Amino acid sequence: MKLLEKTQNLAFDPGVTPKEGGLPGLSVLKDVVSSVNLFGIIAIVGALCVSGAVWAWGNHSGSHQAEANGKKGVLICSGAALLLGGANGIVTFFSAMGTKIQ
């Protein structure tokens, strides 16, 4: 009988869903997050330029270490740009998938 009660407690639905407008300052928080995202994208553009220059310099000078670091920087910047640019879509996708869990 105790196992059945524990299972029923796990299936309890608390009824919590995201609600816009529940707390003050939501618009300010959205503006802050958007600004941080924009700042990150601008920083990635600069880092991508530097990584590309290091890659080119390493290739032309014969410095294999600099070339490898430049390639690594380009890949990291590209991945970071993908994540920052798609952050809203990624969160929306997984949030929608989470609502389907029963």
Score class of each variant (00 low, 15 high):
V32L: 15
V74C: 06
L23A: 15
G15V: 01
L4F: 08
S78E: 01
W57C: 06
W57I: 10
G70K: 01
V32E: 12
G85I: 00
A80F: 07
S27W: 10
G22H: 05
P24K: 14
S27I: 08
L10C: 13
A96N: 15
D31H: 11
T7I: 13
M1S: 10
G58M: 01
A68T: 10
A47T: 02
A43M: 13
P14F: 00
A87H: 10
A96K: 13
I90T: 10
K19R: 11
T17F: 14
G89W: 09
L38R: 12
M1R: 12
L83A: 01
E67A: 09
V91S: 12
V54P: 04
V16K: 03
A87F: 11
F39P: 05
Q65H: 11
S63E: 05
G22W: 11
Q65W: 06
K2D: 15
L83E: 01
T99G: 12
G21R: 03
G85C: 00
A47P: 00
G22Q: 06
L82M: 03
K100S: 08
V54H: 06
G98S: 04
V45A: 14
Q8I: 11
P18Y: 14
F12D: 05
K19I: 12
W57A: 15
S61L: 01
I41F: 09
L4C: 05
K71L: 07
L75R: 07
G70Q: 00
T17H: 15
F94H: 01
C77V: 03
L10W: 06
F94E: 02
P14D: 01
L29M: 09
I41G: 06
G21H: 03
S27F: 10
K72L: 14
A47C: 05
G73M: 11
I101D: 04
P18I: 08
G98H: 01
V91L: 13
H64I: 13
M1Y: 07
Q8R: 08
M97H: 02
E5H: 06
E67N: 07
G79D: 05
W57N: 12
G40S: 15
V74M: 07
F93Y: 15
L10H: 13
E20H: 04
V45R: 04
H60F: 11
L82I: 04
S61M: 02
K72T: 12
I42T: 12
K2P: 09
F93V: 08
P24C: 06
V91R: 07
I101H: 11
A87Y: 14
V33Q: 13
L4A: 04
A87D: 08
G85F: 01
K71T: 05
L75K: 04
G62S: 05
A43T: 09
G25T: 03
L10F: 09
L48W: 01
F39K: 08
C49E: 07
D13S: 09
I41V: 15
A68R: 12
K6C: 12
P24R: 14
V50G: 08
M97V: 09
K30I: 11
I76D: 04
S63F: 02
L3N: 10
K71F: 03
L3R: 13
N59A: 14
D13K: 04
N59H: 10
L26D: 07
A66C: 13
